[in-house]
C-alpha cells in the first residue's frame, strides 16, 4: 500500500525565512498522525504544502502517491482539509456551508450526510442559523464538518480542537479514532501536548525542523519519573528514567522491606518532555 504521505527533503522559504527545513517523513495509511510544535514551528506551512496550496521551495511531497500540485484534481477528491482559521461563510447557515463545500465533489446523498454530520457535531438545532451567530468553538465544529463531508481518505486537520470544550474534544477524538479504524488517515496538528498522546505516532516540529518522530508511549519514556517513598517515616526521592525496566530496577534495589510504608510515582508530563526535547535539540545546534 502506498504511504498516505511521503515527504522528501522538503524545505519552504518565505523570503529569507526558512519555515520548513529539510523535512523527511513517511506516514502510513489508516493511522492518526500527530504534528506537534510550538507557535511558528511550521505546522500550518507543512499542512498547506501537503494539500497543495503552498509550493515547496525544494524537495517534494506525495499524498496518496500523488503530487499535490500536478495531480491536484485527482487528489482533491480524497483529501479533507480543516484550516486553522474557521474559513466559513458567516452569512450562510451552518448547513448551507457544509452543503456548499460538499457539492464541489458531487457527494451522493449530500443532504442526508450533512444532517448526519451536523448531528455528530451536536449542531442539529443550530444547523439553519447563520454561522455569524455561532461561538468560536461552534464555528470550529462546522469547519470540521466541512472537512469530512465528502468522506475523504486522508484528512489534514490544523489544530481542530483548539477552542473546543472538553466534552466535545473527547467526542472529536472518538470520531477521529473511528475514522482511523475505517481506514482513514488523519494528519492532525496541535500545540496541545496531551492530545499528542492520543495519536498513533507523533512528529515534533521545532523551528521548521523535525526534532523527533515517535509513538506517544516512547515519547513518555524519554521523560523522567520521580519516585517518592517514605522509609521509617522519612520521605525519600529518586529520579528514574520513565521506562518500565528502570522502575523495576529501582524497586529491586529497595527490596521493598516493611519499612517502606508508601510509594508514589510522578511521571514527567508530556509538555515538559516535548519542550525538553525541543530545547535539547536547539541547544546542541547552537553550540555546534
Amino acid at each position: 500500500m502506498t504511504n498516505a504521505v511521503e515527504i522528501d527533503h522538503l524545505s519552504k522559504d518565505y523570503g529569507k525565512l526558512r519555515a520548513l527545513d529539510n523535512i523527511i517523513l513517511s506516514v502510513p495509511q489508516g493511522a492518526i498522525y500527530g504534528l506537534v510544535g510550538p507557535n511558528g514551528a511550521g505546522k500550518t506551512t507543512l499542512i498547506k504544502t501537503l494539500v497543495g496550496t503552498l509550493k515547496p521551495t525544494t524537495g517534494s511531497v506525495k499524498v496518496l502517491g500523488l503530487d499535490p500540485l500536478q495531480d491536484k484534481w485527482k487528489l482533491r477528491k480524497h483529501i479533507g482539509y480543516m484550516p486553522q482559521t474557521a474559513a466559513l461563510y458567516d452569512d450562510l447557515s451552518a448547513k448551507k456551508n457544509i452543503l456548499f463545500f460538499g457539492a464541489a465533489q458531487n457527494v451522493p446523498d449530500l443532504e442526508k450526510k450533512a444532517d448526519d454530520i451536523l448531528a455528530f457535531a451536536e449542531l442539529t438545532d443550530r444547523g439553519n442559523d447563520l454561522v455569524r451567530t455561532f461561538s468560536g468553538g461552534m464555528k470550529k465544529r462546522v469547519s470540521l464538518c466541512c472537512a469530512l463531508i465528502h468522506q475523504p481518505k486522508i484528512v489534514f486537520l490544523d489544530e481542530p480542537t483548539a477552542a473546543i470544550d472538553p466534552h466535545l474534544k473527547i467526542e472529536s477524538w472518538n470520531l477521529f479514532r473511528k475514522l482511523a479504524k475505517s481506514g482513514v488517515t488523519l494528519f492532525i496538528s496541535t500545540h496541545l501536548m496531551d492530545e499528542a498522546l492520543l495519536c498513533d505516532k507523533v512528529t515534533i516540529l521545532g523551528n521548521g525542523k523535525i526534532i523527533a518522530v515517535d509513538t506517544p508511549q516512547k515519547l513518555l519514556e524519554r521523560g523522567k519519573t520521580k519516585l517518592k517513598y517514605s522509609e521509617n517515616g522519612e520521605v525519600k526521592e529518586s529520579i528514574l528514567d520513565s521506562t518500565p525496566e528502570s522502575l523495576a530496577n529501582e524497586l529491586q534495589k529497595l527490596g521493598l522491606n516493611q519499612n517502606i510504608t508508601s510509594i508514589s510515582l510522578q511521571p514527567d508530563n508530556i509538555e515538559n518532555i516535548v519542550l525538553g526535547i525541543i530545547g535539547e535539540k536547539q541547544n546542541s545546534e547552537s553550540t555546534g
Binding site: 494539500v51 497543495g52 496550496t53 484534481w73 482533491r76 477528491k77 483529501i79 482539509y81 484550516p83 482559521t85 474557521a86 474559513a87 466559513l88 461563510y89 463545500f101 460538499g102 464541489a104 465533489q105 466541512c146 465528502h150
Partner: peptide, 14 residues
C-alpha cells in the same frame, strides 16, 4: 483573507 477561497479550491472548485 478568510480562507474560504483556499478551502473552495481544496474542496475541488476550479
Amino acid at each position: 483573507t478568510r480562507g474560504t477561497l483556499e478551502r473552495m479550491l481544496i474542496s475541488g472548485y476550479r
